[in-house]
Design a binder for these strands. Structure first.
Lengths: 212, 212
DNA sequence: GCACTTTCCGCACTAATGTTCTGAAACGTA
DNA sequence: TACGTTTCAGAACATTAGTGCGGAAAGTGC
């Protein structure tokens, strides 16, 4: 994607604006007057440049035959939501699931992009039972996890205790050679264990409880 | 919005399809061949009918000068998200806020339409402090409420105890002349009180906890 | 300066395209 | 059947609008 001259930027902006206003693309002469260009052939010349550089498509001999190429505009709308795969349920005692290669036909849930960001490495699980009540997560809640092996102190993570072969969701604090795993619920006591015994599986990104 | 003849329905469908395919509207002759119509004047005639009936707009003497009128199409996409007003914070002891007439400039949060439904009467509050820990709601959580005075048994609602002048968020069970208010956290005891002393303010629809 | 490329200009040409006119067919109603 | 309205047909017309050509201006590297 090469750079655009000032005139080409003007034209591209005008085309975007025009299409938003009118719902159909401008003619060569619309662009000419809109961008104060002295000749239609100059518009044609720069439209060809825009095609060459991959910003628009154009159907020959078709009036208003312009199409904006997706992903190049400055004023494009981002999709409102990201589809996050819902990989199943997590129940007390179950090993914490990890995302597998995207199987087709997996159920997904839509989450606002403003919250999920890019949605990379995210997956969701439905919580079954009271196993996470100490993390203020109830039966039926939806938890959104990000698969990662690195968490910051104070973040909530799904961790596996290797020796005990247990998986649990706790706040994670590295304290020297030790790791402190702190339940969300302040009335419960933290667990201390050796850092080598702790494997971080994923990070809690969000909890979504929806009451019909 | 009057009814359309078969030909007009065909034409409208063709226009929608064409615009989805090409990104710009069809010409009169595109419609003519696409709908197998024998004359451009017939297309023109029926376009005028579609304008008359409110399905499209048309700019005179402008090639491809068609615009679909919003809200009339069969294949239109619904918006992905609903903007729910974020009316402020709720802290321990505060009276539970109720939505006021839509003040302009209120911050909003986008929630997926699949979850919120129409979004009628919904508003959101940021939870401050541990006041709702017994409802499994943590500091910083976002609660989505629906303003209503009617709740079903077992739903979680914001209720005001008139005599005590207290507001609280509990599961609501009507039991004859009494109301049982049950904390979400099963280790805590329910409150029983007289039905006349309980005013339902709003219903908990969702809890959203997001960890940066 | 000189050669070369990029960009611009004005204009003319022609295809694309909306519009209109006359009349006919189809349809409903008295 | 007679009449008015709606819809369709075919053709011609008038703009609209894309394209191409010769040449000029502006920038670039030697």
């Amino acid at each position: 994607m090469r750079e655009l001259s000032e005139r080409q930027q003007n034209m591209l902006g005008f085309i975007e604006e025009f299409m938003a206003d009118y719902g159909y693309p401008p003619t060569v002469r619309d662009i000419q007057s809109g961008c104060e260009i002295s000749s239609t052939s100059v518009v044609d010349y720069n439209l060809k440049a825009l095609i060459q550089k991959g910003y628009i498509n154009r159907d020959a001999e078709v009036s208003r035959g312009l199409q904006l190429v997706q992903g190049t505009g400055r004023h494009e709308e981002l999709p409102d939501t990201v589809a996050v795969p819902l990989l199943g349920t997590i129940a007390a005692g179950d090993p914490f699931p990890l995302p597998t290669a995207d199987a087709q036909g997996v159920e997904t849930i839509d989450l606002p992009q403003s919250i999920t960001g890019s949605g990379e490495n995210l997956y969701a699980l439905r919580v079954k039972g009271e196993s996470m009540i100490d993390a203020l997560i109830a039966d039926g809640d939806l938890v959104v996890m990000e698969q990662t092996s690195r968490v910051e102190n104070g973040q909530t993570a799904a961790v596996r205790l290797k020796l005990q072969d247990e998986t649990t969701l706790k706040r994670f604090y590295r304290e020297g050679e030790q790791v402190r795993l702190q339940p969300e619920n302040s009335t419960m006591d933290p667990i201390m264990c050796d850092a080598t015994n702790v494997e971080v599986l994923s990070r809690l990104v969000a909890v979504w409880r929806f009451i019909g």
